[in-house]
Design a protein around this nucleic acid. Structure first.
Lengths: 141, 141
DNA sequence: CTCTAAACAGGAATGATTCTAAGTTTCCTG
DNA sequence: CAGGAAACTTAGAATCATTCCTGTTTAGAG
């Protein structure tokens, strides 16, 4: 019942990112997210890494995702009250949820746009995080 | 065990809004939201209208809120995976979540700003809803 | 090689929300 | 104005993503 080591390490992922020790489980979670750009849920990550890590538990996936988010290695994305999704794109961007297919697309800002410039914020405001989500459909072209 | 009528009606709220029949329960939910601009949760609404409607059930509050949202009479606001909050402000606006106090403030856009203008959307996109949420703190002035 | 703190696994618990079944009220039609 | 269907409400059970708890395992320091 080995859990961590005793498995082939991922040579392509550093042992430490942003001060977070990259255990085998964290590596696999991160690797999976980097490969899947579909914004998977925790459960989808869980299923996705089972091949590489058959004994991993869902709780561990949640722990890994939380650690990665906390260390700003990935981002957590929420749509309404649906299960959280995870995204390895750290650039400032929004998310477009296509209601027809259920897919999620990253949305960049046009160059030169500074989000806080267009918002009428209260004075003395320190913004730590901005989240923009769009819902709609991709019309048939 | 009367549930709907047999209670003093709210003369200040019309019997029908956007095609939604305003039952006594919906009136109270709506009236409460209009008075409380603090973006209350379903449970807070539930507690808030109990004085006026002692027999109301939480399920009904959820039903009413859903009906009001569906008919675009109020808006539902989500922060991460926290309980949904509800907002009677229908103008296009964002929400700033002050982490220090836990309060939520509406954030307007500066005049002349069209959200979709600054986003690099995929072609043929029909946007039905935009949600902007900010997290941060109000620095001591 | 030991010791301690961090990680992990598995399963139980939590909590917001939804569902279900049964009873009420409103609306419509005659 | 009676009768029945449809819309609403209620209370409690069920759901399900997420978190918590407990015992084990592992990594890193000395």
């Amino acid at each position: 019942m080995t859990t961590q080591a005793a498995q082939t390490p991922n040579k392509d992922i550093p042992e430490d990112i942003n001060g977070l020790r990259m255990t085998r489980q964290r590596q696999e979670v991160y690797r999976f997210l980097m490969g899947e750009r579909t914004h998977p849920t925790a459960n989808e990550v869980f299923i996705g890494i089972k091949k590489a890590l058959p004994n991993v538990s869902l709780a561990t996936v949640y722990n890994c995702l939380e650690a990665l988010v906390q260390h700003k290695i990935i981002r957590q994305v929420n749509f309404d009250r649906e299960p959280s999704r995870y995204c390895p794109n750290l650039d400032e961007h929004g998310h477009f949820h296509d209601e027809t297919t259920g897919t999620i697309h990253d949305v960049k800002f046009k160059p030169g746009i500074n989000l806080t410039d267009i918002l009428d914020l209260p004075p003395n405001t320190v913004i730590k995080d901005i989240e923009i989500t769009l819902r709609g459909q991709l019309a048939a072209s």
